[in-house]
Design a protein around this nucleic acid. Sequence first.
DNA 1: TTGAAAGCGCTAACAG
DNA 2: CTGTTAGCGCTTTCAA
Lengths: 338, 338
Amino acid sequence: MADKVTIADVARIAGVSRQTVSNALNSPEVVRPETRQRVLEVVEELGYRVNLAARQMRTGRSGLIAIRIDPAGDGINGSVFDRFLHGLTESAAEAGYRLLLYTAGDDDKEIAAFEDLLGAHEPDAFVLTSTHHKDPRTSWLLDRKLPFVTFGRPWSELPEVPHPWVDVDGSAGTEAATEHLLATGHRRIAFLGWPSGSGVGDDRREGWRRALAGAGLDPTGLSRATSDAIADGEAAARDLISGDPDITALVCASDSLALGALQVARSPNPAWHAEAYRRIAVVGFDDTPVAKAIGLTSVHQPLTEAAARCMQLLSRALERTPPGTILLPPSLVVRQSA
Amino acid sequence: MADKVTIADVARIAGVSRQTVSNALNSPEVVRPETRQRVLEVVEELGYRVNLAARQMRTGRSGLIAIRIDPAGDGINGSVFDRFLHGLTESAAEAGYRLLLYTAGDDDKEIAAFEDLLGAHEPDAFVLTSTHHKDPRTSWLLDRKLPFVTFGRPWSELPEVPHPWVDVDGSAGTEAATEHLLATGHRRIAFLGWPSGSGVGDDRREGWRRALAGAGLDPTGLSRATSDAIADGEAAARDLISGDPDITALVCASDSLALGALQVARSPNPAWHAEAYRRIAVVGFDDTPVAKAIGLTSVHQPLTEAAARCMQLLSRALERTPPGTILLPPSLVVRQSA
DNA sequence: TTGAAAGCGCTAACAG
DNA sequence: CTGTTAGCGCTTTCAA
């Protein structure tokens, strides 16, 4: 049984006052080096650890960072968040913080969760994911001057109070994917994405468009939008390919869509296309485990680094430094599919 | 800004003492109903919430449950843990607890993490996953009489101090998978698993063997063991199939292995097998997103329920009730692959 | 540079 | 049934 050793025990054995122990630990510069040395030895010897509850009562800091965890969903894209979460757990630990999980059905419920948490465990900061247009969560936190960082840009068009964020440059990813296809000889490259309006989706489409424009190619008629499911991706891919015999490659906004597209690309069905077999290259987005498993070329997000950067910005925010923003470049992982 | 409202504010406005407020909240039966009513109204009105740090100092209870989160790994099987984690976050919330994350490289590091956590955030309980033979973590926690539950059986052969655990009956899963194949007409059904010694792996193999025995079939020569990677699964499947022309189905210990097996099953290669095309049925284990994505029949674990049961056992453990154990039945999700 | 005193918000114990 | 007292372990005054 870890016998509770308090600051008083350390003080008694080191022959100093409780206060000096606290100082030696929290404000080293204010204590004579030899005193500090002796205190630290006793701390080590006794295995003393600060009691965070007690510290929290005095300082109001809990050492906790709250982050929402979502239902698994279709699971394919869920793994992106999971990798981020793991990275964040480690980065947070290095900075002396621990992650506290909560769930919330929607933005309003999440704001209710903020209130719950703030009144109970008092996290020192929040990490928000899946930011979107007019996100009420960021305004709520900003209003209360609570430290937070978002993994994802503020997608609002209106100028807003700035806040720290980290994101991966999605358009650079689809642009790189498209350029890779161009370099491999493809000329007619289509895009499979989501209905416009979502910041992330529009951004990814833009990268593809930019790459085509850079090669002097016309994107007209080469883009389809659908919801993010395998079956939808398959239908849209089939539609694209059968409607345009020159298409030889597909850039997709997600691995889910790409998976659907692959069904079409890998088993050309004479029923929907009469011409001889043509190999369709497919590129996905997120480099999920599925992509790796089935040899799908995909845009990889540096999630561990993103997590580390989030912590970095959070540390700054906790010191009330003006917000920083970081846009990370993704990388293309080339596999058999393209 | 949420203006801190303390128990004193409530007491003052309700016209009672602080203690009565505390009682009304924590020991309702000891307070006159009308007093309690009034107190609760004021609590509501003021938006009062207990300060957990203060409560923790008095009671020693933090309302936190600690759980380790692992690196993503190959990611395919990682999703099992993630679904469990999500379920646990919700079940914990319903019971008034929050999850605290930590990482640890191995068992010893995890025990060090226990000590860290216990000295700092003081979680009320731990949830352990990936239990294995002679798991030092459970002994450590048992020695200190700390409440915990494991998701996974204690796989030790030696009689040990019992502890609460929840697990999914893996052998029932592979047995059901095999029976399904038998019912579909398959007679020669092989098993692709891991080297013996791992409790989980041996258990899954046993279910397959049991089903064959039940049908009066001999499992000899029909089992292969390899590490849990797609490429290894593919090699082993190829070896099995090319070595025995009568094999028509494969039961696998994981979706990773099954994915490898599918490569073989779905694109029969004349080079390694001269006979006419034969369709090989494949069944995986864990029903990961990948399985869903590619139409792989797989054994599904009821992870949300497992999480709920873990919380249930934990609640009991927190009241120092003798440990309970729960073995949950999995279900077979039939898709195209079998 | 070190020490003494006070108090964060809460609840266990006891007194009324 | 309700109120008073005390103190959990820590850090922030302030004084020595």
